[in-house]
Amino acid sequence: MNPQGLQVTTPTDTTIVLTRTFNAPRRLVWEAMTTPDKMRRWMLPPPGWTIAVCECDARVAGTLRLVWHGAEAGQSMALHGVFTEAITHERMTHTEVMLLRTGEPIGSQVETHEFSDKGGVTTMRITQVYVSKEVRDCAVASGACPGMEEGFKQLDELLAQSV
């Protein structure tokens, strides 16, 4: 069976669900997703960026820490998270905050990964929960800033009314 491509759905106002299958037992998928030297192999950074730090301790209260460096001096982005749930090979939940070089947060979410397998094929379901519909829409639109997408929609409605 060929792995099924990435499916993205938005079942509620504040969530995004990503589903993907992998041609491997869930034990291996879990290992690839939680072991830092393996994470570095597939967590490709944006073009021109490198992974400077990659730490992952997939246990309750364990932390997740990623730092990326850009090609230009001083360019840096980070992701910090804490695991709130970890059932080995089955299910894990962690918080996630994206941080600027200055430490200022620019977005946060809670992410749950669920793994099930059948006949050596693993289905992974990632549920991302955002703080608001506004932020979730921004993540879906990928290119709109926090508040922008929703804002432009409101503006459109406002303009339509005032005509």
Partner: peptide, 10 residues
């Protein structure tokens, strides 16, 4: 990224 993960899993 998931395609890179496919290769790693193989």
């Amino acid at each position: 990224r998931f395609e890179a993960l496919d290769a790693l899993l193989e």
